[in-house]
Design a protein around this nucleic acid. Structure first.
Lengths: 226, 226
DNA sequence: ATCACACGGATTGTCAACAATCCTTCAGTA
DNA sequence: TACTGAAGGATTGTTGACAATCCGTGTGAT
């Protein structure tokens, strides 16, 4: 029956999720030195599972750890954000190409459905924040998994997206171009539906390239502060 | 005076390194279920640090872990190896471009020096194995760090290279084209030295593309078994 | 004979105390 | 007054024991 099993959720997993969302949402500010005991009391955990979670988060680059000195959330810079988008441009381009070759029709239909949801969200004005925060993430998430490329999916979902979401919360960047982004998304889905991998890759790369240019402009205008 | 400090090596780090090299070198065969206590006695560790290391290795994709069931080394497939090279092609291309823009002259000189070392190794025939095993890794390693792109470096050194090295040991693949690879390496360094990022990217992508084609051919010929 | 279920052993997950290391503070001296 | 050094406190790293969960075996019923 292929039912989704919650897969024995351990305390360490819980700790990992808690810390991750806390970092992403900015509850833990970058550079802030944080003690293990404080984290324990804050999230109602014990130090064992917490330390295991810290290890995982460190190897994912969300926090840095100096032996016997403590842990702190990674400090972020404008340059690193730009570099991140350069990487995204390449990897998501590849993901789009392979998704066009490998996604099932059902997955493509589901992808279209999410875009419809986004559209109504945007039309209802209040949706802009939602769109930028989670809707866009959902779209890219589906394409990444649709690529059937294990390592690529792992890197996008496990590394890059958390970073991107962290920056988004930090910079409170409603990137300001939801309508345009939605149109670009639709074109990408069309290319995937037509099984045109080359075009899908091109459009995806241009999509992320545009997003990067948008951010660079905002940085120059001083709209984004770090 | 900017001295390199060995940075307080903890037991968990030790465990991480031990396990990592064991996995990479094939001492731990893929799919093999491994108990924590056995690992402890084998590497003279206690379970605490070991578990922390296991967590890190899991999030890097070198092993999989099912709660209460145990850990096992990732099983590798031919397809996944190919996918890995697709990703490398893009990311190392970017690394080469940025390295051309940002490497210091001293770093470039050092890069050339390593190539000279490789050449003498190859000429002394016995060096083929060395070249493929570590020399090639060294070359790509230097370019990755030379890119000054934090996340890119992190992903290449922390994820992809370990995977590639693991496959190499597993498949005992002296990719069989050391001379050709050395020539390609020299061309890449020349492009970097000329600060021609575009060319460096092109050459690096072609270099890795060729390596992938070489592997695909061997798989077709049945020279590589999984 | 095959399947279902339960029990026991073994393994993993968790906890709290102990040891090792670092950072801060506070003298003391130039 | 500024700097060096050491001692104390606090925090992290580690350990071994305890609890929770899973896998294999064996028994019973269909």
């Amino acid at each position: 029956m292929l039912e989704f099993v919650p897969q024995a959720y351990t305390r360490a997993d819980e700790a990992f999720d808690c810390l991750q969302t806390a970092i992403v949402k900015g509850d833990l500010t970058p550079g802030e030195k944080i003690g293990e005991v404080e984290l324990c009391s804050r999230f109602h955990l014990t130090r064992g599972p917490l330390r295991e979670a810290l290890g995982r988060l460190e190897s994912r680059g969300l926090l840095v750890r100096r032996p016997h000195a403590g842990v702190k959330v990674v400090s972020v810079s404008a340059d690193e954000l730009i570099e991140l988008y350069r990487i995204r441009e390449l990897m998501e381009g590849l993901a789009a190409r392979q998704a066009a070759e490998r996604m099932t029709d059902a997955e493509i239909a589901a992808l279209r459905a999410t875009l419809d949801t986004h559209e109504t969200m945007i039309e209802q004005a209040q949706g802009q924040a939602y769109y930028q925060a989670e809707g866009d993430y959902d779209f890219h998430h589906r394409i990444a998994t649709g690529s059937r490329n294990t390592k690529l999916t792992q890197m996008l979902l496990g590394d890059l997206y958390y970073m991107v979401r962290m920056y988004r919360y930090r910079l409170s960047t409603s990137s300001g171009r939801p309508h345009m982004a939605l149109g670009e998304h639709r074109n990408i889905v069309d290319a995937i539906a037509n099984r045109d991998g080359e075009l899908a890759e091109f459009l995806m790369k241009r999509h992320i390239h545009a997003a990067r240019k948008n951010i660079e402009q905002k940085i120059r205008d001083g709209e984004l502060t770090f």
